[in-house]
């Protein structure tokens, strides 16, 4: 499996600090953007897009998926796909009710 992979990838300190600083900048950006008068649902889309970019940076570089075997990335993507499935099937019910749960 890893016969040709005897040495583990070592990220440089510069790479890790760059990712860390990018994450802080994106955090400040998402706070600034949340104060702008962006109409719904565009504001949710913008906030989630920034969060997804941050999540990608953490998964790819801090968690090392960028340098790792593809199988581990597949596990993460699989989890996200099944999460989307869970939300979709649930919303097929809850979005189309005449009455939300009675007395709730």
């Amino acid at each position: 499996m890893s016969a040709d992979n005897h040495t583990h990838h070592i990220a440089t300190a510069k790479q890790l600090w760059t990712v860390g600083i990018a994450l802080v900048i994106l955090t400040l950006l998402t706070v600034v953007v949340s104060n702008l008068p962006i109409p719904s649902p565009l504001d949710i889309i913008v906030a989630l897009s920034i969060a997804l970019v941050k999540a990608f940076l953490v998964a790819a570089f801090f968690m090392g998926l960028y340098w790792d075997v593809k199988f581990n990335s597949m596990l993460l993507i699989g989890a996200v796909v099944f999460f989307i499935l869970m939300v979709s099937v649930t919303l097929l019910d809850t979005l189309y009710r005449d009455d939300v749960v009675p007395s709730f």
Binding site: N72, A79, V80, F83, M86, T94
Partner: peptide, 29 residues
């Protein structure tokens, strides 16, 4: 060991996923 941890993290994502689903359902309502 690393792959085992990733499998555990899949479980964690879906565990929190249930809570995020509740968030989405109630926010839609």
């Amino acid at each position: 060991a690393k792959m085992g941890m990733w499998v555990f993290l899949v479980n964690e994502i879906l565990f929190f996923g249930g809570l995020f689903t509740a968030y989405i359902v109630f926010r839609a309502w």
